[in-house]
Design a binder for these strands. Structure first.
Lengths: 154, 154
DNA sequence: AGTGAAACAGGCGATCG
DNA sequence: CGATCGCCTGTTTCACT
């Protein structure tokens, strides 16, 4: 599960470069690391096989595609055993971008986007509270995402 | 701020392809969309200029680089006006990967990673509660990130 | 805005140290 | 593991539409 031992300083340098820009040519990474392009290629392949790298993605600005409201929601369940079924239902709602199984007050904690506040209210009523198994929810609306970034590599 | 009008169905198709895999050759995108490679190149350039595309990144599995604990934290401030100063301090803590200005119970809401639960406790004591301006915090520990994904295009 | 061609650069497998 | 080589493919620009 933890491969941190198997990751040396070259891996770390590679990771810190490619996490900032997924389209960086591997040859450029190679030059920065003072090794050959093939070496970078091999290393990245290995990091993928190890599961250290989960994938790559272009990052979209939600507001620019019409999603102006972002919220976090704590979910209370009627019975803890309903967890799996409720998660399956939540997966069907594409605006939910993150779902966590949590300790403390809530059983489930999610991050959700909506077109606007009214849209969020509608989703809450029509989609979330319609899920049998959910007893109630608490919403925290994000007025501004002050920053968002990746974990530093070392 | 909202460019959703300026985004047509070709843009959407491009976005949905490149958000799933940032390393996909643009020529392959071109073939899927049945246009030339140059057209894809132009479109992506335009989407970047519009700010629709924020960037690209390789996604790392936090557990594989030694971060086994993930938590959300609600932060209470002594005075609301301290917001900017506190955010500046939070920015200095690299394990904080997301920071939101929120309504409701908390003034600030963050997502944070730690090596383990003890490390989280240490960070909470030594780094967060050391920030003057923060009156108290509430922690929600994620036992499992059930899913995490991008907003769908469309 | 999109096309197609051309020049350039990178990806990636094979093979050797 | 990493380096070198080499072919294939993708990237990027430009004149034309």
């Amino acid at each position: 599960m933890d491969n941190s031992q198997q990751i040396d300083s070259l891996d770390k340098k590679i990771l810190s470069l490619i996490t900032k820009n997924a389209r960086i040519p591997f040859l450029e990474v190679a030059r920065e690391c003072k090794v050959s392009g093939a070496a970078i290629h091999q290393r990245i392949q290995r990091l993928m096989n190890l599961g250290v790298i989960k994938g790559s993605e272009f990052v979209i600005n939600p507001a620019k595609i019409g999603y102006h409201t972002c919220a976090f929601m704590g979910v209370f369940l009627k019975k803890a055993s309903l967890f799996d079924k409720v998660v399956e239902m939540l997966k069907e709602i594409p605006q939910i971008v993150e779902c966590h199984y949590t300790t403390g007050q809530y059983a489930i904690f999610i991050k959700i986007y909506a077109k606007n506040n009214e849209d969020l209210k509608r989703m809450l009523h029509d989609r979330l509270q319609a899920i049998t198994g959910i007893s109630s929810t608490e919403t925290i609306i994000s007025l501004e995402e002050t920053f968002k970034r990746q974990l530093p590599i070392d």
